[in-house]
Design a protein around this nucleic acid. Sequence first.
DNA 1: AATTGGCACTCGGTTAATTAGAGTGCTAAC
DNA 2: GTTAGCACTCTAATTAACCGAGTGCCAATT
Lengths: 351, 351
Amino acid sequence: MEKKSVSDTVVNERAQHFLKALIERYIREGQPVGSRTLAKDTGLDLSPATIRNVMADLEEMGLVSSPHTSAGRVPTITGYRMFIDSLLTVQNLNKQEVEKIRKELLLGGEESGDVLKSASKLLSGVTHMAGVVTLIRRDKNNFRQIEFLPLSDRRVLAILVTEDGEVHNRILHTHRDFSRAELDQAANFLNKSFAGHDMEMVRQRVLQQLNDARDHFDQVMTQALTMAGELVNASEAKEDFVIAGQTNLMEFAELSGLEQLRKLFDAFTEKREILHLLDQFLDAEGVQIFIGEESGYQLLNGCSVVTAPYQVNEEVVGVLGVIGPTRMNYERVIPVVDITAKILGAVLKNH
Amino acid sequence: MEKKSVSDTVVNERAQHFLKALIERYIREGQPVGSRTLAKDTGLDLSPATIRNVMADLEEMGLVSSPHTSAGRVPTITGYRMFIDSLLTVQNLNKQEVEKIRKELLLGGEESGDVLKSASKLLSGVTHMAGVVTLIRRDKNNFRQIEFLPLSDRRVLAILVTEDGEVHNRILHTHRDFSRAELDQAANFLNKSFAGHDMEMVRQRVLQQLNDARDHFDQVMTQALTMAGELVNASEAKEDFVIAGQTNLMEFAELSGLEQLRKLFDAFTEKREILHLLDQFLDAEGVQIFIGEESGYQLLNGCSVVTAPYQVNEEVVGVLGVIGPTRMNYERVIPVVDITAKILGAVLKNH
DNA sequence: AATTGGCACTCGGTTAATTAGAGTGCTAAC
DNA sequence: GTTAGCACTCTAATTAACCGAGTGCCAATT
């Protein structure tokens, strides 16, 4: 029994070697790979027949499968998973490539939105797949200043500036017209009371004051507080999400269905679903790989997602990565995503 | 000679009738239509042989063509053009449909950007093609108020509000740090001097003052004026462009090439080219139809664009329309685009 | 003179049959 | 445990045959 198990693991070690070779080959060629080709591919000098035996074992373990009796083998999802988790040997990028990425990101303009854009463009350009970058809106985005401008027809333009210089604006509807002076007064009050405070705190205080003082509070102020509350609410909702190079996926889609691709594209423009998906990887450490079929989301069938969170000043502020066919060159994509995440973090640190 | 010409025109009238029938049929079925089917389609009680003669004439005129000897006829580009220009009978929408469009647009949220978004969604939804809406940035967007906020590291956040309530913001880099007070003073000056004035005029005055007074002017003010100038410049550049339902085109793309579709999608995300294309129709009156092949743009081969400018307060402010296969149901699409343009104008009038 | 029926002809698409080849599984030998 | 050999399977590509839709033209008809 013991002997069996030892021999078992020996076989498994070699089997894993073959699995790796098979997947790498399949990723390169895209076609079922047979025993003959595999025999030549690996360094070991073994006959096709031997390989066949091993392949039969691998098939039994559910790591590979054959499309039909007389075709080679193709990795299954679990096969890919094993490959990704413990088999692949990432090729680190050379200095030159790293430098190229850094240069391209620095060149990407000053506004933080533009940097994200060029990051996703970069990812899609280098990998020939779709690049995505998200930026979470961190709650500690403190209140800095608010401003109200009267428009016509009982509408007021409210402008809210946060501590780190983001500007939100919104048109609010009020019950009556307000004069410039009234609005200024309200804004002044808010600014004095809340400048530098946490946004959520501002929100709660505003609501509280509204309740406490609804009776004797000046109507202007009441309105102003409501507005501020609304604005704060609104500013929480937004979340940045940038995608580039979707059309790269079309090449690979000749293989997969066209209907599939359409759903994927719709999800991209809809954004919400993808965003939710990527948020899962915020907490993860380093590069994460995610095979479409593994998670109910059937619009990702045939796809894989390679992600990495990126951080500025020790704090995770977003996720970036690429989306492509499950049959992608992980050994190259992984370091690209990894490095890009690090560089993006560094670039953003200098605002 | 005269007799010949008379008989010619007689033939042509009937020929046009057949051309119309053929195109309508082709649009419905998508397949070459033969003499037999066409004979049944038209009210006239004629034999296929007669139709064949007419078709031969039409082919000679370059209005139809046959993919191969034993297929029916298919309209050519010039055939489509004639159909569009003088043959088609638009079916006006009934009240119910119009009301549905209006409702959907009104429901589209308050921000003007959102309305454009829902307009293009609406167009794509109703026509099952891609819907586009552009909004030109009209120059007479007057200066209203400017505000400067100091950030760290010699950066200043400038916020510019225009008369109609649009908010532009931008981070400016300065040669030294400014205090809050300095910035307020500069902003006050600008606001007093320029509130309500034409943006281009502001720009010029700013430049002029910079030249006149570079020596004795306070450095803060100089910086402020530069900033204001930059901001005004920046605010001119932007142009809104919204597209929805691109993926609808994928259905029709099974026919046309996939490479073609990819280029089209890239053009959509690139925006510039499409924008330039649509701008041509700003000056046009009413619905315009544009067949891809007619204008060098080879990425529009196989496509047609149906557009209409829309206006608020007698003034054209943008173009909207749909992009789809040349083989589209013009008789239905045209009134949809027409009505949507009118309703969008009306909705925007109430800001 | 326009219209029509008839007829030979063309050509694309579909089906069926054949073939070639790649690859497997199994068995027996090493 | 490995390998060679062999029978077997299944796909993909090629070829052949055929069907049918549609045309063009000519002669007959109105």
